[in-house]
């Protein structure tokens, strides 16, 4: 389990990094926390000829609050830094709750927000959370910057809109609405494993009825799966048992997962529905608590 030969660069600036990526095209690969890339290289499942290590590029690990109350999170921010940021948990409880579900703390110490988002493992939490939060991704290349919404970013199984010559530099998360109900839940074989199925959702209420909602599942498809039919069903409805049951059924119907060694497609459909129902229940309970 030793990687194939590669050339290693450790640029000091973002400009230098994107220049290197431009120069090496498809041969180049960014190294962030290494928690996904290094195992793949050691197994020789990934054989990049050139590694561009981002760990010395300054300024990519900042968490800033935007004018509108939204967040700007540098791509190199360690997952653990999010987990430990109490102020961030106030501003975005869903994001804060998602991070501890990623692997183990040793992995989160090194693993970055950007690495998780670009690696795009379909069972990972952050891509689904970013879709549910309606986040935007800032991609830099030698040609300049462009912004892609999380939903457009994920194309298919481990395929994203990030081109070989691009670096994700920043994630912009819209402001959290006051009173928003939310939950994240998943089922994994062991604590810290990639989920067999999971869901990240929020609901905005208007009186007793749902005004708006976002429901995104992970581990149940090639990319984060937003279930708009279920969101539609929620709108205008109370979060009662009948609604929740119906949402469970809709999610079950909508999902088209694959089977793998840990769970069959049917299991994922069932559990996707169950988790969504339970998460909505947990979100509703939060509302009752707050009231």
């Amino acid at each position: 389990m030793k990687p194939a030969p590669f050339t290693y660069y450790c640029p000091d600036t973002l400009d230098e990094a994107v220049r290197l990526l431009h120069e090496h095209g498809d041969d180049g690969k960014i190294l962030a926390g290494g928690q996904s890339l290094m195992p793949l290289m050691s197994l020789r499942l990934a054989r990049p000829a050139v590694i561009v290590d981002m760990n010395r590029v300054p300024g990519l690990d900042r968490i800033a609050v935007n004018g509108d109350g939204g967040l700007s999170i540098g791509a190199m921010t360690r997952q653990r830094a999010i987990e430990r940021d109490a102020a961030l948990a106030e501003r975005n409880p869903l994001l804060a709750a998602a991070v501890p579900l990623i692997g183990h703390f040793q992995i989160r110490n090194r693993g970055t927000v950007g690495g998780s988002l670009v690696h795009a493992d379909p069972a990972s939490e952050l891509p689904a959370v970013s879709v549910t939060l309606g986040a935007d991704f800032v991609l830099a290349s030698a040609a300049g910057e462009r912004v892609v919404s999380a939903e457009d970013f994920y194309l298919g199984y481990m395929a994203t809109a990030c081109e070989a010559n691009e670096v994700l530099t920043e994630v912009r998360v819209p402001a959290w609405k006051a009173g928003r109900l939310w939950a994240i839940d998943e089922v994994a074989r062991r604590k810290g494993d990639f989920a067999m199925a999971g869901v990240a959702l929020w609901v905005d209420m208007d009186g007793g009825a749902c005004a708006d909602a976002r429901i995104t599942l992970f581990g149940v498809g090639g990319k984060p799966v937003r279930v708009e039919k279920a969101e539609q069903h929620l709108k205008g409805a109370a979060l009662d048992d009948a609604t929740l049951k119906e949402v469970e059924r809709i999610v079950f119907e909508e999902l088209e997962p694959d089977s793998d060694i840990h769970a069959s497609a049917l299991y994922r459909k069932e559990v996707g529905g169950v988790l969504t129902r339970r998460a909505l229940g947990a979100a509703a309970a939060r509302g009752t608590e707050a009231a």
Binding site: M196, H262, S264, Y267, V271
Partner: peptide, 8 residues
Amino acid sequence: LSPDRIRA
């Protein structure tokens, strides 16, 4: 005794 089997 995996979850998938138990569900099945």
